[in-house]
Design a protein around this nucleic acid. Structure first.
Lengths: 334, 334
DNA sequence: ATGAAAGCGCTAACAG
DNA sequence: CTGTTAGCGCTTTCAT
């Protein structure tokens, strides 16, 4: 075990309190003792025990982060952005990958509470009664996919409905009328909102809504892959497939290419968040791009503001950021 | 603040010790009190304070993980694998992205010590005196890129020299003699070993080693991109570029494609860890594939074994796993 | 400027 | 079976 404040105190024949003050530079402290304390601390390789400090201070300088899938580049960029922003302020991440599993998310949530994190940044995964009954959501900020519950909470997201509307409009402007949608579970607000935006847009453009063209599943690769499979079984292909996230889109592309369907010549594809850091993905997907790094930064700002503001009115912070549409090469003008 | 053991105790007019035992099911405890304690705990929404418990038990059930870049799919898969394995055993990850920066890594390392993690899984980033002078490395397992220090420590990695040798042999077997290498800093053992493997292989094949064909930098995209740029300035192109990791390779591909160099018709590319979960990367890179998930699992096993074995001989655990070579489509037979 | 003492919430002897 | 006590390492009044 490493040296403690008490060890330093005994070594110098002074009291632990004095050592603590010397180390933290708080309260009146003699310059000479202060120096001595530092010397001995060095000598004894003293490392402050943050656990003890946390217990006393009721502050862990740790933020819990729950994301659905660290291997999805969208979330890994977000994670990195959060980490970077937090480090600047002296905080750390207690990392949780829920694997898009609500049970696992719940488990992690309880765990994070027990570990007394100062706050949480959560990307939820679907239908959850968890957050409905929580006493307070005041030190939580929800990000991207926010919970569909009827109460106030802080969040950072984009206007998914509008983004889906815009994307759909782009598709229609390119001459498409027959559009299939790969859709997540509607308990996910992003899934719901993106579908609503789509519906509203086609309606505004006089295109009839056909539920048969909505392929529901999750936000996973498999959902996109299987949806494309079903689409290919139909007699007439849609001219565009709208995937609600990046991973679904990859699944669609995979399935289509297995059947030698050319994108976008045979079928166009549009989606959300088709980030390509490698520059090697082909074709370049036409996609709504959320400002993912900024989302991470804002979430951190949001949570830390809340912590700093202490017990002053716990007001929720609602952040709706802008987005862009990356034109890519997967939408054909017809 | 949430309810404590003391609150439950007072509520029931029993002692905190009894409540603790009831909750933990340790020691003799009456079935009736036990039930009552549970009821009241529920009623008061008791959440055990893990910080206090940690302080007492000298155990945080938290493992520090330092990786160079969460947005590199190789590391994000590893991270997820570690998280999954740890959760099963009731541990959590304190996550640190060093951004391939040794100062940041050092900072995180100190921080993790202070936070009393029970162990660490570290992918180091280059030259570091940090680990040389540590009193003990016994609760650390190094992964992938292990530190180049002359002392014992636990690790999980592959035989990088042999893997590079095999990859080079494959290149040579395909008729190539003029091979350029995109190389990380040699203070990184993976960089060093992979270069050594390359050198040994060409030597064994009677090909002369030409230092001018080694393009040194870091493991970053930029290094690959710039190396390719320099290569294209030469009068005669190598027939193959060997990149030491995936990200470098992406940079190479990017730069080559900007100059409309066809891969592999004009220049072949081989590398390490060209993982493609999307299935959309083109061309498919010929690449050594480390068993990244298994590396994560093994690292977890390694660290937990060490923790469980307590103070019995702290023996280091050396794990060298197997690898595969993914043939891909970026190596041309000439 | 420093010491003494209490206490954060929990667990683990040791009594009874 | 349960109460009491001490203490994990630290900070922070309150004295001196």
């Amino acid at each position: 075990m490493s040296a403690t404040i008490k060890d330093i105190a005994e070594y110098l024949n002074i009291s632990p309190g004095t050592v603590s003050r010397a180390l933290n530079g708080k309260g009146r402290i003699g310059e000479s003792t202060r120096r001595k304390v530092y010397e001995v601390a060095e000598k004894l390789k003293y490392v402050p025990n943050e656990i003890a400090r946390s217990l006393k201070m009721k502050k862990t300088s740790t933020i819990g982060v729950i994301i659905p899938d660290a291997t999805n580049i969208f979330y890994s960029i977000m994670l990195k952005s959060i980490d970077k922003s937090l480090l600047k302020k002296g905080y750390n991440i207690l990392f949780c990958d829920s694997d898009e599993n609500i049970e696992r998310e719940t488990e992690y949530f309880e765990l994070l509470k027990g570990k007394n994190v100062d706050g949480m940044i959560i990307v939820t995964s679907g239908e959850n009664s968890i957050y409905k009954d929580e006493e307070t959501l005041s030190n939580i900020v929800f990000v991207d996919n926010i919970p569909a519950i009827d109460r106030d909470f802080s969040y950072v997201t984009i206007d998914n409905m509008k983004a889906a509307y815009d994307l759909t409009q782009l598709v229609i402007d390119n001459g498409h009328k027959d559009i299939a949608v790969v859709c997540a579970d509607l308990s996910e607000t992003t899934g719901y909102d993106r579908l609503e935006g789509f519906k509203k847009c086609i309606k505004d453009n006089g295109i009839e809504y056909n539920p048969d063209k909505i392929y529901k599943g999750s936000f996973r690769y498999q959902t996109g892959y299987e949806a494309a499979g079903k689409i290919l079984k139909g007699k007439k292909y849609p001219t565009t497939i709208f995937a609600q996230n990046n991973v679904q889109a990859y699944g669609v592309v995979k399935r289509l290419s297995e059947s030698s369907i050319n994108i976008p010549d045979d079928i166009s594809i549009v989606c959300f968040d088709a980030i390509d850091q490698t520059g090697m993905m082909s074709p370049k997907l036409t996609s709504v791009m959320q400002p993912v790094e900024e989302i991470g930064e804002r979430a951190v700002k949001c949570i830390l503001d809340n912590i700093d503001n202490d017990d002053t009115e716990l007001e929720v912070s609602r952040n709706i950021l802008g987005y862009k549409i990356n034109l890519g090469k997967s939408l054909k003008r017809i």
